[in-house]
Design a protein around this nucleic acid. Structure first.
Length: 433
RNA sequence: UCCCCGGUAGCUCAGUUGGUUAGAGCAUCUGACUGUUAAUCAGAGGGUCGUCAGUUCGAGUCUGACCCGGGGAGCCA
């Protein structure tokens, strides 16, 4: 007799009445005399398998009764709809095989501290909320690629090793590059600009590294960023793309990941509300709102976490804040022709306290201005000669933005800490496992 | 880097003004139970109280230094 067909737990409901095979790991077991209820997880979901002593091979029944949490096993059984079973269907066991035993799995169904879970990240990934978060992450990545690929953008990979900073040198990881200092990239943007001059519309997507001594729920030292760059785009064009892009990602996830969002206990109505248009206001308008409400803030400063919360308070959508004071923004941003003290920059601030998920701008396209800025920021001009070439040879208005992937995942999943939004987070002083 | 909080069983924690043999729940192990839902019930094993030094007749408890973890700030996506 041939082995039953292997079926994913997620698909079991369409196999009621059939004898199938499930391969996975034991998450929990309850015994009641001659009955065993085995919770079997296969990565797509968890199903209850029922073993009856009087209808199963005695040796197998005995072997199952000694299995510890996270032992791996193959189980064969008839799929039966049963309201008594969590999930609605269960497997009435007819056979099976223990593959790998496990004893004293460190992560139980009870509470653990985040420090303990982080030390066991490689095992924590098996728990339902972590797995659901990473499934949503994967869906977001697909949505990001689909959005740009379907609109004529070319995927353009920027290098990880770079000779110099693009936004200041204090937060770079230095590496030894054949005896010369090099740095891990903190943004692919400058290279993306070269790509836009070659291909029209591009996006970079890859890991970026920042040696900031940040110890907050919103920071990683290694995080993934998606950075579109568009030739001939103005700041308004950039904001239009950012809005449509965010709406598309959120609605894609809603359409495809409702089971995961339910596991994560996410309020779906909050995500359904993410539809254009979003609120747009200038930095000065934001500050005026803060002042009118008595919210303490020094005009000219960048927004801190409480300020970002204020900006989106009472709004269920992201808010776009544009035209920032130029001296708190990067050297490559274009000045507002209507006010030289303002940069044509935009930050997109996510609702519910998730903070800035996008930073973008129209780029400075004038050679002389950029040379001034590089000098004013005390950047090594020789490292930027290639970048200045982009202005020497057919410079055009252009712009783009960077979206932080993990912050976006955290917001959409409703995850409090960004460390759960990447398989193996890299944080201040933390690089294991 | 700065500010707060913490470190006691595998995990999560309690531990009185310093005082006999440091406790609980969960987990583990043994036993009972043929429909459990974080099953339940009975029993058992399990500790260098973060490290070092100090105060004291006596330190899990008080003091100092250091190590590790958590939360927040600044900075950023």
């Amino acid at each position: 007799m041939s082995a039953p067909a292997v079926v994913s737990v997620r698909d079991l409901a369409s196999h009621v009445g059939e004898v199938v095979r499930v391969r996975g790991w034991l998450t929990n077991r309850r015994k009641s005399g001659g009955l065993q209820f085995l919770q079997v997880r296969d990565g797509s979901g968890t199903v209850q398998a029922v073993a009856k002593k009087d209808s199963l091979d005695a040796a197998l029944f005995e072997a199952l009764s000694g299995l510890g949490q996270e032992s791996s096993l193959i189980v064969d059984g008839e799929v039966a709809a049963d309201p008594r079973s969590p999930g609605g269907v269960e497997l009435k066991l007819t056979g099976g095989q223990v593959i790998g035993t496990a004893t004293d799995f460190p992560i139980s169904n009870k509470e653990h501290s985040s420090g303990f879970l982080m030390e066991h990240r490689h095992l924590w990934l098996r728990s339902s909320k972590q797995a659901a978060t990473l499934r949503v992450r994967a869906r977001i990545i697909k949505s990001i690629r689909d959005y740009f690929d379907s609109r004529g953008y070319i995927c353009f990979d920027a290098p990880m090793f770079t000779p110099a900073a693009c936004e200041g040198t204090s937060t770079l990881f230095e590496v030894d590059y054949f005896g010369e200092p090099a740095y891990l990239t903190q943004s692919g943007q400058l290279y993306g600009e070269a790509g836009a001059m070659a291909l029209g519309k591009i996006y970079t997507f890859g890991p970026t590294f920042r040696a900031e001594k940040s110890k907050t729920r919103k920071h990683l030292t290694e995080f993934w960023m998606i950075e579109p760059e568009i030739a001939f785009a103005t700041l308004d064009d950039v904001m239009d793309v950012a809005e449509e892009f965010i709406e598309t990602i959120v609605q894609d996830v809603l359409a495809d990941c409702e089971p995961e969002l339910t596991v994560l206990e996410r309020d779906l109505d909050k995500l359904r509300a993410i539809k254009r248009p979003f609120k747009r206001e200038t930095y000065d308008e934001s500050v005026a709102r803060m002042e009118a409400a008595g919210h303490a803030f020094k005009h000219g400063d960048d927004f801190g976490a409480p300020d970002e919360e204020f900006i989106t308070h009472g709004s269920d959508k992201p808010v776009l804040v544009h035209r920032w004071p130029a001296d708190i923004k990067a050297f490559y941003m274009k000045r507002d022709p209507a006010d030289d003290t303002r940069a044509l920059a935009v930050d997109v601030i996510a609702p519910e306290g998730y903070g800035e998920i996008i930073g973008g701008s129209e780029r400075a396209d004038d050679l002389a201005f950029l040379e001034e800025q590089i000098a004013a920021h005390k950047l090594p001009k020789e490292s930027f000669e290639w970048y200045l070439d982009l202005r020497r040879y057919g410079s055009v208005p252009h712009g783009g933005f960077g979206l932080g992937l993990e912050r976006t995942v955290a917001w959409i999943c409703g995850t409090k800490h960004i460390r759960e939004c990447i398989p193996f987070p890299r944080m201040l002083y933390k690089i294991y496992p």
